[in-house]
Design a protein around this nucleic acid. Sequence first.
DNA 1: TTGTAAGCGTTATCAG
DNA 2: CTGATAACGCTTACAA
Lengths: 349, 349
Amino acid sequence: VEAVPQCEFMITIREVAKLANVSTSTVSRVLNNSGYVSDFAREKVENVIREQNYSPSAVAVNLSKRETSIIGVVIPELDNTFFTEVLSGVTEVCDQRGFSVMCCDTANSVEKEDHALYILGQQRIRGLIITPAQERSNAEDLKRLHDSLERLDIPIIVLDRHIDGITLDLVCYENYGSGYTAASELIKAGNKNIGVITGDLQLRIARDRFRGVQQAVLDAGLELDEKYILNGDFSVPTAYKLAKKMFENNTYPEGIVTSNNRTTLGFLKAANEYKIEIGKDIAIIGIDSIEVLDALGLNFSCVSRDTREMGRTSMRLLCDRFESDSEQHKLHVVPCQLILKGSERRTLK
Amino acid sequence: VEAVPQCEFMITIREVAKLANVSTSTVSRVLNNSGYVSDFAREKVENVIREQNYSPSAVAVNLSKRETSIIGVVIPELDNTFFTEVLSGVTEVCDQRGFSVMCCDTANSVEKEDHALYILGQQRIRGLIITPAQERSNAEDLKRLHDSLERLDIPIIVLDRHIDGITLDLVCYENYGSGYTAASELIKAGNKNIGVITGDLQLRIARDRFRGVQQAVLDAGLELDEKYILNGDFSVPTAYKLAKKMFENNTYPEGIVTSNNRTTLGFLKAANEYKIEIGKDIAIIGIDSIEVLDALGLNFSCVSRDTREMGRTSMRLLCDRFESDSEQHKLHVVPCQLILKGSERRTLK
DNA sequence: TTGTAAGCGTTATCAG
DNA sequence: CTGATAACGCTTACAA
């Protein structure tokens, strides 16, 4: 049987073999640097490969090896710079180690997440890095996620958020600590009554950050006034609405903690509209840094984390899993860094 | 020969067939909704699929069909929100149409781009959406890109930037027009001498935007002063350095055009440091909107484009190509939208 | 309407 | 050191 190329460009291992006067096994051996190949044969093969611009089909390799080199990345918000920075870190390491990344945006939707996992499963991804869309409170929803992940039967790293009832490698932020630090510093800077715009309290990370704030206030011998606890959801519009309402009533705390980058933006927008000056009329420490604010020279204080490094770490952990699969699950907590620029202090009283 | 599952979770079409008491072809037919299948057989198969949670291996399907459903996306800066917004648009449409996206960040490096294309080629991607890392001035580099793309032998959409010497579907911005509009509006607002921080003039999009500015100034019967033409590269640090130098010498134009979102940020940073007030000491119209500035209530005027839609459009065009391959190459120019918020006018003279 | 069998482009086992 | 040959999991004529 004559081997006929399916398209004029893509040649197969068989044609390389024929042109080099060897068998496909030999070609495969030089391709993978496995087994014994004489220098003579190797050279012939390498020449043909170069001349013909042969590139082996990953699809065929994958099928044959029953293993791909594709890493699935499931992200809840592709329009949140936090996650794109993480993604950037992941791709960086993937690149170095010869993996490809297939990424899915779930837009915080459980349905889209289910679907993404199904698709990635079909692709037979080698490993998964996932930030769950939500903490599925519905038992059925949660079970579906558990099942999906288990069925995948591959190394999985959970990033930033938590999944209840299942133990997996986890790369997360020092959430409690970031809340605690932020509030403490506000107090240390002289602010007596502290407010907070929380994240989506359905998410453990939001609860942890909030608990940190609460504890810091308690530890300082102060009280957290109910009316300064604004129940947000990590989104710009909600934070904006909440802050707006607060300023409308003209009753707001001396210092406030905003629970993530999006929340900060919403807050700042409202403050701006009401001519409330940051670091003058109200003190603020945000969780998450915001590149632009630095560029603008705003004196925005925050507790920050190395987001790109979180991505790199996740991918490195995943690679560890590929090498050895201990039962032990790893927990990598990314520390928060305090960055004070002035907004933690009110210059007006 | 007995069919033995390779792992307890992933079952194959053969096992489904056996459990349903049909042949693999029948299973394949219900899977693909192709050919004739009796209701009886279909039901049996569907039941088994559901019970066993069978999900067909995309790898095997791809190999068999000699075609994947993977779209390659090559992006020069994963840390530029413009590109992540585009990516978001692309994934959105991919999702709807059953494609997966494999994305590569080239960090504006020609070498990384070459490598990315090689990897994506190995994956036998179905289509490609690419924003080239650079306009390869070196003939050899350029030829390598041409060859890579040609060898891929798949539909390709070029996005935002240009590739010399090759005609492909192109989705780009109204670059000349955006420069022209920005400068015209500055002039219309009463600014007599106009400056500009250009992008990387190696890139045609930067040259086009700059030409637009030049022409608008000419058309207004004015002159573009050499010393107000700052040769940037679309990056924050360079724009910052250039603007800083300008403010240091305390000689700057009445109005300035910044050539993209990164350039604007660099400029604003410098302005801030030198206490130059936007819309007061100096007028500015940027190319590209910046979400955060709106949130901050800054009166930042710009010419903007619908970035996410650019991503959607690219993916839709790619799908068109899958359906029919006319020789005709499409050019989709995304119009610029003028958004005036005040910074185009100086309130001080 | 269904099943058989030959691929798809690799890898891997096992003789030689 | 090398080459047949049988997978890998699916699709698709073709025959029944």
